[in-house]
């Protein structure tokens, strides 16, 4: 479990707080989506989840973040990184090798995973992400979606309990974006890995995540399940975030007492809702 208490952070040489009094608990096995405007503090928040902040990035740090009860400020960040692996926003710069297999090997070698186990793990993560055929490819020549999968595979090879991804679909087409979410959902369901993802595509969040967190100027502006959004549509409008139209529609219909079911999050659900109303 990751517990965040009164977390605040001001970057060195900066006057405004990038994070301001954040309180949240992320349970094991959760799937949390984080969204918010550019500069809202999403990336900064992910850095606080495994000790990068305050250990690797300088600034004023307030509050405390604990992972399974251990304070992230009190042990080397590398120790937490194995538990809470992160795929950074800048996908190209975080690669350390030029070939896919070497990229996955890097962490395994560094953390001293026994050599007889290394091969097994590489085979497994390549299979889990469906990229067996990319093993010997140069990373430079891969598509954006393939690079994301390689980055996720390298993380997964270290067998983390939590994976954090910072806008992995930022430069992907809708289909590849959905594929990433499907992979993450499978990891979450089948292996119980906690997933924390920063994402701008609100429709995808509604469809896949268990909890949603909206950041605004370093503060939590909304936290709840995607269905809870329906009760806060005005908050979202103020923040300039478009709640999926099907969600808004169902919320309206429920308020007008035309429909007595649950808030809808996907077009499929909305279709079912309309059919039920028309019956």
């Amino acid at each position: 479990m990751i517990s965040v208490k009164n977390l605040g952070f001001v970057y060195k040489d900066s006057k405004v707080a990038a994070l301001d009094d954040i309180n949240i608990e992320i349970a094991d096995g959760d799937f949390v989506g984080i969204t918010g405007a550019s500069g809202a503090g999403k990336t900064t928040f992910t850095f606080a989840l495994n000790g990068i902040i305050p250990q690797k990035i300088k600034g004023d740090f307030y509050g405390a973040v604990t992972i399974d009860g251990v304070d992230t400020a009190e042990h080397p960040a590398e120790e937490f990184a194995r538990k809470v692996g992160e795929v950074f926003q800048d996908i190209d710069s975080q690669m350390v090798a030029s070939v896919v297999e070497d990229e996955i090997l890097f962490g395994l070698e560094n953390f001293g995973v026994p050599h007889e186990e290394v091969g097994v793990r590489i085979d497994r993560v390549l299979r889990e992400l469906g990229i067996e055929d990319l093993r010997d490819r140069e990373i430079e020549g891969l598509s954006g979606g393939q690079k994301q999968k390689v980055a996720i595979a390298s993380m997964l090879a270290l067998e983390p309990e939590v994976i954090v991804l910072d806008e992995p679909t930022g430069e992907l087409d809708p289909e590849s974006s959905r594929e990433i979410f499907k992979i993450l959902t499978a990891l979450n369901k089948e292996k119980g890995i906690t997933v924390i993802i920063v994402e701008q595509k609100i429709m995808l969040l509604c469809e896949y995540v268990k909890h949603m967190m909206v950041l605004d100027k370093g503060k939590i502006a909304f936290y709840g399940t995607p269905r809870d959004m329906a009760a806060s549509i005005d908050t979202f409008k103020d923040l300039g975030i478009n709640v999926p139209r099907v969600t808004e529609l169902s919320a309206d219909l429920i308020r007008e007492k035309i429909y007595d079911g649950e808030v809808t999050l996907t077009v499929d659900d909305a279709e079912k809702m309309v059919r039920r109303i028309l019956k």
Partner: peptide, 26 residues
């Protein structure tokens, strides 16, 4: 410089500092 920063951070978080000459798998 930003990119180099990300690169260094990514390497460090994946245990770069822990590596010795025996670490290599190949």
């Amino acid at each position: 410089l930003k990119k180099v920063d990300v690169s260094a951070m990514s390497a460090e978080m994946r245990g770069f500092e822990l590596r010795g000459y025996k670490s290599g798998y190949k």
